[in-house]
Nucleic acid binder design. Structure first.
Lengths: 179, 179
DNA sequence: ATGTCAACTTTACACAGTGTCAAGCAAAGG
DNA sequence: CCTTTGCTTGACACTGTGTAAAGTTGACAT
């Protein structure tokens, strides 16, 4: 349901109905809407084998390979959690639990960015205008779910285009030009 | 009030109280919360001389100058409308008027991006890996309010750093490397 | 002085969605 | 047979938006 266009408008009652139980029964399983969404996100991670996808990144031997692999993995992962993510993002301002849950996931992405940047740095491949920390900030921002949303939704990019262009952009943005 | 941290939580009653009138009187002036916010945005544009700031971009003689000038102008403009913008963004999913109003403003930004990219292109300075359209998509996304928010809030960049880094990034991202 | 109009006030209410609470029912299992 | 578990139904509190109606106040016109 969350993937069907209007994620934030899926109400507790809708979910209950779809599950074939009463709205109240839903509250016997999940204390709040936020926690239901968070649990859904965790469930999706498990089902989709999220860990495995990201594990393959650490096999990369150069920083550049790692950067590409990470963008591929994360970029391919976004659409799978976008439904839940969107719903969670929509309640950031009103719900502390939702904020914390999302923040947590984003910090995980950030540490993925950091790994790639550090590997680039130790290869001596990091763009000379950037410190490692600043490069992490930039990459992390480039790869935000909102940016994916804008590019694939508003700009009409396909998933494959997104990954390809983002890899190319990240290289121009972060990697020292050979000279 | 909108600039004070928790923009989306400013309610009609809060505004009325601050204005020294009753909540109902507010509805005599603005039919809905969304329209009040939109009117506020327009008002801020006027007060801050938004047009003038962007007009100076078109004086640039090279694409690169124009790119820098546009990022400077828009980047400097974001903090001025961020309060209202944030409140408007927060109600995108629930309020069609808010969505349309924001979309409208963002299309204006996009056309600023397009002007800069086209000038770069006609200078022959556009990165060879990019079509003009794709460059516009990228620049527009790079300069999103959400990205500004993430970099200045979550990453702790100062306004000056944001502008400087964004100009540098845009150059690496869009401009053909001299070779 | 009287009338009228505009801007506002107070009070009340409809509506949506979340979350709480309490009483009851039905099937499973010692 | 009795208890527990998982549910059901129904009612309700709360928040915030927006609507509606009746009353007040001051300015200004005749």
């Amino acid at each position: 349901m969350l993937e069907e266009e209007k994620a934030p408008k899926v109400r507790m009652g809708d979910i209950a109905k779809a599950a074939g139980i009463s709205r109240q029964a839903l509250y016997l399983h999940f204390p709040t809407r936020a926690e239901l969404l968070v649990a859904t996100a965790r469930f999706l991670d498990e089902v989709n084998g999220a860990d495995a996808k990201f594990a393959s990144c650490s096999e990369a031997r150069t920083g550049r390979e790692r950067l590409d692999a990470f963008i591929q993995a994360w970029g391919g992962y976004i659409p799978e959690i976008y439904g839940v993510g969107h719903a969670l993002l929509a309640m950031q301002d009103t719900d502390e639990a939702a904020r914390a849950a999302w923040e947590d996931r984003m910090q995980a992405v950030r540490s993925g960015c950091r790994s790639a940047v550090e590997m680039l740095d130790s290869d001596g491949a990091l763009c000379s205008e950037l410190t490692a920390e600043r490069a992490v900030d930039l990459l992390w921002t480039l790869l935000s779910v909102r940016n994916w949303e804008q590019l694939t939704q508003a700009c009409g990019w396909s998933q494959a285009e997104y990954v390809r262009e983002m890899q190319a952009l990240a290289q121009r943005a972060l990697i020292r030009t050979q000279s």
